[in-house]
Each structure stands twice: as C-alpha cells, then as structure tokens.
C-alpha cells in the first residue's frame, strides 16, 4: 500500500507546471500589498503592532477563504477532469488519498499564512513600530488565523472532492466568504460570527479598538486585548475534527 509520503510526492508532481503554488503565492502577495501598500503614517507607527492585530482578521476573512477555495478546487479538479479517481482507488486506500490531498492543501495554506505573518512582523520591525514586539499576541494571532482557515479548507476540500462540478464548492466558498465578512460588521450579533465558519476570524479577534466617537473620530483611539473565548476555540477544533471524519466517510462511500 502506498505510503502517505509517497502520495504527498504524487500530489506535488501533479501540481507541477499547473501554477497552483504560484497562484497561492500571488494571492498572498496581493493580500500583503493590499494591507501594507501606502504611506506608513505616524499613527501606524504609534499603534502599529496592535493596529495590525485589529485589522488583519478582516483582511484574512476576505482573502484566506478564497485562497482555500482556489487550492482545494485546483487539487481535486485534477482528478475529476482526468476521471482519475477510479484508477487511484485501485492503487491506494480511499481514506489515505483523502488525507494526502488534504494534507498537501493544508501545507500550502499554512505556508501562505506563515509567509503573511512573517512579512507583517518584518514590516513592523522595518518601520520601527513603537513599543516592544508582542510575541505572545502574534503567536496567538497566528493560531487564530490558521485554525479557522483549516476549518474552511476542510469544507472546501470535502465539497471539491465530492462534487465533480467545481462551481458548487466555488459558490459555497464565495457566498460563505462574503457572509463571513458581513458578519464581522454586525457587532451586535456575535453568534452569527460563531455560527458561520467564514466568520470565525471575527469571533476569534482578540484586539479591539476603543475611544472612537463620531465627533473625535480617531483622535483618542486606543487598542486593547479583549476576552479570548477559549471554549469557542475548543468547539471549533472539535467541529473541525467532526467535519474531517464526515468528509472522509462520505468520500470513502463515493460512487465513481
């Protein structure tokens, strides 16, 4: 039986010259340009470290689900287009194939999230943001960015591998992304962010902006850490595990 490492190597070979890795990189660079392009004002230097922790979850909620959709669809579409699943099932276990594809996609996603995280930190140091670098908060931010992305990737991966027509996972991804972004604007309805996997970036946001009023606007603004809902985080991990098991089970029963 083929080992998972061998399957991962196969996935890498399949994606060669298909520009999937390049497309993922371009998307990440685009996200960084979107956030970091422009003049680094005095306000950014003063509040920089906390400001980024406050702003980036919203940007992540726009870009990372779309990146997940693109990678998952790209990896699974290869098999659907070539009607390769039947052939692959004769070489390896269905579950192992599901895991290998999932793992490869997650590796790509993690690399993109890590790259984005490193560039943000580097930007802060290069522009000499005021105050010490809050390493603990940034590690927490990395965790709270990666986990919702994994959850979303699991949904996209399951849909992409189950449906031959890739428009279905794509529509789910796009509509989900925008509902997630929308939920982040509705501060009065916190349960909506917790309910929608695409809104989890907002539910796990732990830095808030205070002191903003209609009259003074940004003059007396300050940022502070808020309560972290670890119970929700645990529920997210458990639901991701459950989703993984459901997806794997459905794939193992899939008629090809």
């Amino acid at each position: 039986m083929t080992s998972i490492l061998e399957l991962l190597r196969c996935e890498f070979r399949k994606t060669r010259r298909r520009y999937l890795i390049a497309a993922a990189l371009i998307m990440t660079v685009l996200q960084l340009c979107w956030c970091l392009y422009g003049e680094c004002t005095e306000e950014i230097v003063t509040h920089g470290w906390m400001l980024f922790l406050y702003q980036f979850p919203l940007v992540n909620a726009i870009f990372l689900p779309l990146l997940s959709m693109m990678i998952a669809s790209g990896l699974c579409d290869i098999e659907h287009k070539g009607t390769m699943l039947k052939q692959l099932f004769t070489c390896t276990e269905r579950n192992r194939l599901f895991d290998a594809k999932l793992l490869y996609g997650l590796l790509l996603i993690t690399a993109c999230v890590l790259l984005s995280w490193m560039v943000i930190v580097l930007y802060g140091f290069l522009h000499r943001f005021e105050g010490p670098f809050p390493l603990k908060l940034y590690l927490l931010y990395f965790l709270f960015t990666l986990c919702p992305t994994i959850m979303i990737y699991l949904i996209q991966h399951t849909l992409s591998i189950l449906f031959q027509n890739q428009t279905i996972p794509c529509f789910t991804g796009i509509i989900g992304t925008f509902c997630g972004v929308f939920s982040m604007f509705l501060q009065n309805i916190p349960w909506l962010r917790k309910l929608l996997p695409w809104g989890h970036y907002g539910a796990l946001q732990f830095v808030g902006m205070f002191g903003w009023t209609k009259e003074t606007r940004y003059e007396y603004v300050y940022f502070e850490t808020m309560h972290t809902d670890w119970l929700f985080f645990l529920a997210l991990i458990l639901s991701a595990c459950l989703l993984y098991l459901i997806g794997r089970n459905l794939f193992s029963r899939k008629e090809v």
Partner: peptide, 16 residues
C-alpha cells in the same frame, strides 16, 4: 485558465 476557481480568483485580483 481551465480551473473555475482560479479564473474567479483572477477576477478578484483584478478587482483589487
């Protein structure tokens, strides 16, 4: 671009 998702991603990047 034969991939549906990638083509949509290009449009998104274009919008930005």
């Amino acid at each position: 671009i034969k991939s549906f998702a990638r083509s949509v991603a290009v449009a998104f990047a274009g919008g930005i």
